[in-house]
């Protein structure tokens, strides 16, 4: 199924209209009114001023469930809950097995995905293979246009950037990005951020992996490049390490009722960050994560306190 998109303005009205559509979808849970009452905080994409919710969703591992109908139905509930909660960006990649197909399948089955900010990647060698791969992603997602196409881990970035600049002019992609993960090729990425006309970078940043604060985040701010944060939970490692520890007393002051929200609020409160994309296979976790996009965010002083606290654990 092909899908067209209007420009995203994720105001409260648009979100509630989406929820009304969701009610019509058969066999779908009704949307959470509590979530609808308080829209997610948004951040502007520097290149355009367009606002997107600060919490999105990743798909590595969690959405790679193959063709199994039961597992797909299970993940459909997660995607449904994501939109019920006012979510926007979904990030995937051809590297993630069946994740793109599972997302495309879910999008074709739910009615309230109007807030979708579609983000995928090109991850292959050579321009020709890149074009093939990106065309395949259009089919898998059921889209005619991607909001964001990213060059995954800088693989053959010169070749793909050439294609993407052309595609942006033609309206096939709205924004261009480039991704990396923890500690990988940061020098090259910084160089690209300085010299190339990209709209987004995606990098790893979380309460234990703070390296991006030194150079990449300030550079993104300076150059007007939107920042997507991957691995905000360090692939779940933050829970393994801190989940059994007590939540600090002051967590309530920034509207956090669990560790997931504390981890996410730390990340998205950095002034250079546009959005974080935690991945989950569970609806309850998804709802916890989305709630981090509401309420008060920590200021610089509180952020420092958060780091000091986890250092004591």
């Amino acid at each position: 199924m092909m899908r067209t998109f209007e420009p995203k303005v994720l105001g409260r009205r648009g979100f509630l209209a989406g929820l009304a559509g969701a009610g019509a979808a058969a066999n779908m849970p009704t949307a959470s009114l509590a979530a609808a009452a308080i829209p997610l905080i948004t951040r502007a994409i520097p290149a355009s001023g367009e606002a997107i919710p600060i919490i999105g969703m990743g798909t590595w591992i969690t959405m790679n469930v193959g063709n199994d109908p039961a597992l797909r139905a299970d993940r459909l509930k997660v995607v449904q809950a994501f939109f019920d909660e006012g979510g926007g960006m979904i990030d995937s990649s051809p590297m993630y097995g069946s994740s793109e197909a599972v997302i495309g399948d879910s999008l074709s089955k739910i009615a309230n995905s109007r807030g979708l900010f579609s983000a995928t990647k090109v991850w292959t060698l050579s321009q020709w293979m890149g074009v093939r791969q990106m065309n395949n992603s259009f089919d898998l997602w059921g889209l005619k246009r991607f909001d964001l196409m990213q060059i995954h881990n800088l693989v053959d970035w010169e070749a793909h950037l050439e294609t993407l600049l052309e595609w942006k002019k033609e309206g096939l992609v709205r924004y261009i990005g480039i991704t990396t993960s923890h500690g990988r090729r940061h020098d090259d990425l910084a160089d690209i951020m300085r010299k190339q006309p990209i709209d987004f970078v995606q990098l790893t940043y979380n309460m234990l992996d703070l390296e991006a604060e030194d150079r990449l985040l300030p550079l993104a701010k300076e150059r007007g490049i939107a920042v997507i944060v991957n691995r905000p939970f360090q692939r779940g490692g933050l829970f393994d390490r801190f989940d059994s520890a007590p939540l600090p007393d002051w967590a309530g002051a920034i509207d956090c009722s669990n560790w997931a929200q504390l981890f996410l609020k730390f990340v998205v409160s950095h002034p250079a960050v546009t959005c974080a994309i935690p991945a989950t296979s569970r609806v309850d976790h998804l709802r916890q994560n989305m709630a981090a996009g509401r309420g008060r965010l920590p200021d610089a002083e509180m952020r420092a306190q958060m780091i000091r606290y986890i250092e004591t654990l």
């Binding site: 590595w60 591992i61 969690t62 790679n64 469930v65 193959g66 199994d68 597992l71 590297m95 993630y96 097995g97 296979s281």
Partner: peptide, 16 residues
């Protein structure tokens, strides 16, 4: 890195 979880893998083997 493995792009799928244990449960999904076992489910796939069971299907096969």
């Amino acid at each position: 890195m493995i792009p799928f979880s244990r449960d999904v893998f076992l489910d796939l083997v069971a299907q096969y």
